[in-house]
Simulated scan of single mutants.
Amino acid sequence: MRARTLALAAVLMLLVTGCSEQLGDRGGDEGAPPDRIADVDHVEVFRNADKFPNVARICVEGLAFASTSSSDPGLIRVPEWDQECAKHRTTPTPTPTPTPTR
């Protein structure tokens, strides 16, 4: 039950963060809305050695991040977990647009 509560808290934290200025459109007009707001693909919560669930693997578009209840910054990129997150990807992998040749 605690793991489920922590996972829900992590997802809610990400959703609330989506409302902040830090996700504004970086390449557009001042105050423009973000290009897209989406849910994470997968969240797993791990217990630490003291049995307290404070490490979460968060998968976003196949990329892995770690979050803890006490870390700063809130999300830490963990490329070693990408292979596991790729299994949970809910958004299709983008196909690169071919560069026209002249």
Score class of each variant (00 low, 15 high):
G24N: 03
P96Y: 09
V11F: 03
A56H: 07
W81E: 02
A38E: 14
D29I: 10
L75F: 13
M1Q: 09
F65A: 09
E61R: 14
F46D: 15
R77C: 11
L8G: 15
D41G: 01
C59F: 03
N48I: 03
S69I: 07
C19A: 11
A7N: 01
N54G: 13
V60R: 13
I58S: 01
P96W: 04
M1R: 12
V45Q: 10
T93G: 07
G31E: 06
A38W: 02
D50H: 13
C85E: 00
P33L: 14
R36F: 03
V55M: 11
A32L: 07
S70T: 09
G74E: 04
N54Q: 09
I58P: 11
H42N: 15
E61D: 12
V43Y: 01
G62R: 01
V55E: 11
L23D: 04
F52S: 15
G28V: 02
D39C: 08
A66C: 03
T90R: 15
G74R: 10
D25I: 11
L8P: 09
L12V: 03
T93S: 13
P96T: 14
V11Y: 01
G74M: 05
D72E: 05
V11E: 04
T90Y: 05
A64F: 03
P53I: 00
V55L: 15
V78E: 13
L14D: 01
L15Q: 03
C85D: 06
V45E: 00
L15R: 12
G74I: 08
